[in-house]
């Protein structure tokens, strides 16, 4: 019963109802540990991301956000429920860039292209195109350790895009960056999302970041992780993290998040 279905492209998705989805999580639960002494980390999560939609998943540290992404990515199996990704294997961007240090920035991207089956003659040009997309056109021959943190995350983004998946999963990709760089990358990500039309499920514990980026913010509770509430974000892009509308919604969401956390203290 615990399955992650990664259907090949073009087959279309039937996720319960007929509306097309980029990913459909249906009553997904996950526990860790041996039988008898199990820890329930995710409890009955049901969540859809529409094609082309940008959803942020917000939750306190340790609430199971990475676990949820790993399940969706197919790196781990759910304990119960089903996950359907109609567009085939999603791309995943890790919190640590996870670039291969034995390859240059460009070769990292070319490896992704190669594993996707892009013929050798086209890889170089395609890698250059992706590097240009993340505004790193000169970085093809750079080693990973020669790049700054922000540049590494951009190469990692380019590598994830090289998979040409219709769904991009991002696990706190900007958490380790300084505020200025993060701000710039928010703008870049918004631009790239609009240019490519990819669906994004973006995990973060930063409320303002969640509001700044998403069309929809989903709040996850802790221990076990459940979907508590979700907000549509109707603020027009381009947004800024310091916009009043962003701040106002952030305050509202933070209030709700604090309430959730307080609940744990009372038990």
């Amino acid at each position: 019963m615990a399955t992650a279905l990664h259907k090949p492209k073009g087959q279309g998705g039937e996720g319960g109802d007929d509306a097309p989805v980029a990913v459909h999580l249906d009553h997904v639960s996950k526990s860790f540990g041996r039988p008898g002494k199990q820890q329930l980390v995710l409890d009955d999560i049901t969540l859809d991301v529409a094609p082309g939609e940008f959803v942020t998943l917000l939750g306190a540290s340790g609430c199971g956000k990475s676990t949820l992404l790993n399940l969706t990515a197919g790196l781990d199996a759910a304990s119960a429920g089903t996950i359907t990704v109609p567009g085939g294997r999603p791309a995943l961007m890790f919190q640590d860039h996870a670039l291969f240090p034995w390859l240059t920035a460009g070769k990292n991207i070319e490896l992704a292209l190669r594993l996707r089956g892009v013929p050798q003659g086209e890889r170089r040009a395609e890698a250059e195109r992706l590097l240009t997309l993340v505004r790193l056109s000169g970085a093809h021959g750079k080693r990973v350790h020669e790049l700054s943190g922000g540049m590494r995350q951009r190469v990692a983004l380019a590598r994830a895009l090289a998979q040409d998946s219709q769904l991009l999963l991002m696990d706190e990709p900007f958490a380790a960056l300084d505020a200025i760089t993060r701000d710039v990358l928010h703008e870049e990500l918004t631009r790239i999302w609009r240019e490519t039309g990819v669906s994004i499920l973006f995990v973060t514990h930063n409320v303002r970041e969640a509001v700044r980026l998403a069309q929809r913010v989903v709040l996850l509770s802790s221990r076990p992780g459940r979907v508590v509430h979700e907000w549509r974000v109707d603020i027009e892009q381009p947004r800024r993290i310091e916009d009043t509308a962003v701040s106002a919604l952030s305050v509202e969401i933070t209030e709700r998040l604090r309430e959730e956390i307080r609940r744990h203290g009372q038990q």
Binding site: A73, L75, R89, A91, L92, F94, D96, A98, L99, F100, L111, A112, L115, R116, R159, Q163
Partner: peptide
């Protein structure tokens, strides 16, 4: 382990 997982995600 991150490298192995990244490789898997890329389809290796």
């Amino acid at each position: 382990p991150l490298y192995l997982r990244a490789g898997r995600m890329l389809g290796a």
